[in-house]
Design a protein around this nucleic acid. Structure first.
Lengths: 261, 261
DNA sequence: CGCATACTTGAGCGAAATCAAGGCCTGTGG
DNA sequence: CCACAGGCCTTGATTTCGCTCAAGTATGCG
């Protein structure tokens, strides 16, 4: 369940295309998307004792908010929820992570959220000190991780807008759009529970459920099963999500007059 | 109102203490906190044509969401609000920036929020291309900016918890705590309007006002003027903010039982 | 002084939370 | 095989917190 690597662990760059950069972890076969974009194919990163592979069982918390952030993680299989909790039990899920995603990059000295496995999860855990050694040898690596953190921030900002200003239907619609891939009709897997969805969208499970029912009744989505939905009418779903303001809509001068509702 | 620098603009490192690193912009005298930590004192960064100084009048939008992010900014004087807007006028302020703060670092190609001056603002605007040239010469600079972006993320995550799960009183109390400096009793300047506060905290101006009144009536804060409050009882304010979960509270095993309210 | 802007306060309403069943599926044990 | 328990999800009834609407007050500026 928790097997430490041999000293000869290495990352092998296998692919350098612009959109889908990936690397294969020589030892555990895990794919670490985006880690090795500037390495020549075949280049090796020796990470002796710096990483180890883990299987995390469903419901297990493998990083706890406030703990020293000695490791960061690359998810290989399964889904993870990233949570912040209040002492009285209220919870805000600040994001989900799936295969290829990194968790815990932004933390400086302590994790600013907990990470919990939604289902059986396989991940590769990297030592932060080892990472810094890698930075010295491959400065571009740091750039790449910063870019990832930056795009995480863009997602976080969009989520703030959702949490602060959107209605329940808009929240659910926005989530489904964001979670979905491009191909409609296909059944979309929602590994997380309604409770998780509620904690992510800042609402209760009942309201999540009601919102999904409304979308279903309006033929905007179809509910194949509890954890599988499909988008029937993406245009309408997008309308109901509180559309992203179109570029160049307002002059740069003294914009932002308000007309609430 | 908008004066371009001479070609000999430079940043001069003046201070290298761990906590309060700062640099002085040779030309406009602006202080750019944290930009030059690893430069030897007296080291010069020639940024010919890469930056210019600007005065931004109150209410002016100097970066618009969706626009190409050609510049990033260092606020010198005044306060700035960072906003995301929905087409129907609903707005979420995702943060405020004051003297020493950087704005627009995390943006990759387009701004993911608009920046608007709350009052008269003086700022230094850096060309992103020039920044990348600086990175080549001073790699540690990039590290420093990444660290800043990372701490921005920590703040953003905390704000998600606030927006998704806190009550109105908790939101206002949390904001006041976060905005305040360490010295209580002192009058705290709130340059932003109640509308801005509402847009930041995901509530209406009326509810902001009522919450402040409640805090005032309970002798937790004192309201000196519309834009000046002081913290009378920080302990109680902290209690009312929905305390941060204490470190090491739950075992790393299968935590996160819920007991809503 | 009059007007505009910003803030506060009150009254009523409504969207979402809470409370409470009830259905469905899965796993377990007789 | 069925009976039963326990999750998880949906649906309905009721409550409530915060929003909307509407005055009323204070402050600043021409």
């Amino acid at each position: 369940m928790n097997s430490t690597h041999q000293p000869d662990l290495r990352l092998v760059a296998t692919n350098r295309s612009d959109t889908a950069i990936s690397a294969r972890c020589g030892c555990c076969e895990a794919r670490h998307a985006g880690l090795c974009d500037t390495l020549a194919d075949g280049d090796l990163l020796h990470l002796a004792h710096a990483a180890h592979w883990q299987l995390i069982s469903k419901g297990r918390v493998f990083a706890l908010e406030g703990d020293p952030s000695r490791h960061f993680f690359n998810i290989n299989h399964g889904a993870v929820k990233l949570c912040k909790d209040l002492p009285d039990g209220r919870r805000q899920i600040i994001g989900f992570a799936g295969p290829g995603d990194f968790v815990g990059l932004a933390a400086d000295h302590h994790y600013s959220f907990s990470a919990e496995a939604i289902n059986e999860v396989r991940l590769c855990s990297f030592d932060r000190v080892g990472l810094h050694l890698m930075f010295v040898r491959f400065p571009a690596l740091e750039k790449r991780l910063a870019a990832m953190a930056s795009s995480d921030m863009v997602v976080a900002l969009a989520h703030m807008l959702l949490l602060g200003r959107k209605t329940s239907i808009e929240r659910v619609a926005s989530f489904l759009l964001g979670w979905s891939t491009k191909d409609d009709g296909r059944v979309l897997a929602l590994p997380m529970s309604r409770t998780d969805l509620g904690d992510y969208l800042g609402m209760t499970i009942e309201t999540v459920s009601r919102s999904l029912t409304i979308l279903k009744n309006q033929r905007v989505i179809a509910i194949a099963s509890d954890h599988g939905i499909s988008i029937v009418n993406r245009r309408r779903l997008s309308d109901m999500a509180g559309a992203i303001p179109r570029r160049g809509g307002l002059s740069g001068e003294s914009a932002c007059r308000k007309t609430r509702n």
